[in-house]
């Protein structure tokens, strides 16, 4: 598979909903798609990263209204274990059509839950829309705290927006301060599990989206599956998005491909290095577990 996965179309897009754009990280693609899908009855609810009682710490939630979606809009650069709620949504909430948003690894988990529903009773046919977000790596909450409070010298609760782009991690506060740190410095905080990840643009999602490749305030969208294609076409017809062809925007698809290749090449090396990290008594290398080979 290509580093960008299979896709039917790649588009640069931005939501036409002003309320969503105010809250969105970039083009408001995920929030708008879920709002449209809720409105049309394509989904009964969506598992999203909602607010919690700690600043910038997401808590997975099942959103069934646009207001709840808006409360969950925007990126928080830490872990939201959205799969936690998958049976909660399908069984406790009794939703027949569930939307879920996730990082590439979480979308992988969704597909594994559908193809191998070992402990995922009655889930496989209830995933109506799986939306993926591009992800280079993720951070524990404590790591994010260290970056914001130690490196950027801002209080978590005073932050209005966080952003990663152009080689920098940027924090905008409520009172207008802007603090930055170079991305290079955050590498030591990246959770180890991300170093073996071989997916950048959520290859297995129905539709995936992220800022890379499109101008500020816009997102690059990959429409992948038959299901995703139908939803995207419907949303375009309903006027949910402004769009531009990818070959007419800067920096364009080449940058997405470059970053995807970098991530996957680096992490494939990590996966390979795990095979020879140790030493056996006979002098041959001893390896760590490789999830891509066997359990």
């Amino acid at each position: 598979m290509d580093v960008l996965g299979n896709y039917k179309s790649a588009i640069s897009a931005r939501s036409t909903d002003k309320d969503i754009l105010k809250k969105a990280q970039d083009g408001g693609i995920i929030t708008t798609l879920f709002a449209y899908a809720l409105e049309e009855g394509i989904i009964d609810g969506a598992i999203v990263a909602g607010p919690s009682n700690e600043p910038w710490k997401p808590e997975p939630m099942v959103a069934t209204t646009k207001a709840e979606l808006l409360a969950a809009a925007g990126t928080r650069y830490t872990i939201s274990p959205n799969l936690y709620l998958i049976k909660e949504a399908t069984r406790s909430y009794g939703l027949d059509r569930v939307g879920i948003v996730g990082t590439p690894c979480q979308i992988q988990a969704v597909r594994k839950a559908q193809l191998y529903p070992i402990g995922m009773r009655d889930v496989d046919d209830k995933i109506a829309l799986a939306l993926g977000i591009y992800c280079m790596e993720n951070l524990s909450y404590q790591a994010l705290e260290a970056m914001v409070e130690d490196h950027c010298n801002q209080k978590m609760e005073s932050v209005k927006k966080m952003d990663i782009g152009k080689g920098k991690f940027t924090v905008y506060t409520e009172r207008g301060a802007v603090s930055q740190m170079p991305l290079k410095l955050i590498h030591k905080y990246v959770q180890p599990g991300c170093h073996v990840c071989l997916d950048y643009v959520a290859n297995l999602a129905d539709i995936s989206s992220g800022s890379v490749g499109s101008p500020d305030g816009w997102s690059t969208v990959f429409v992948r599956s038959t299901k995703g294609n139908a939803v995207w076409d419907g949303a375009i017809k309903a006027g949910c998005f402004e769009t531009k062809p990818m070959d007419q925007v800067k920096p364009g698809l080449d940058l997405v491909r470059k970053l995807a290749t970098e991530k996957i090449t680096k992490n494939q090396k990590n996966v390979d290095a795990r095979k020879t990290v140790g030493l056996k008594a006979d002098g041959t290398p001893k390896g760590l577990r490789n999830p891509y080979e066997s359990p």
């Binding site: 998958i86 995922m120 524990s140 959770q191 073996v196």
Partner: peptide, 29 residues
């Protein structure tokens, strides 16, 4: 033993979602 100690966990929440007796919760990812 086989996921976190091996440096492979990325906090997706699948384990907590799948546990039939709700013995698994997600704490800080």
């Amino acid at each position: 033993y086989d996921v976190i100690n091996q440096g492979l966990c990325m906090g997706c929440g699948t384990c907590a979602g799948t546990c039939p007796v709700r013995a698994v919760t997600m704490e800080y990812g």
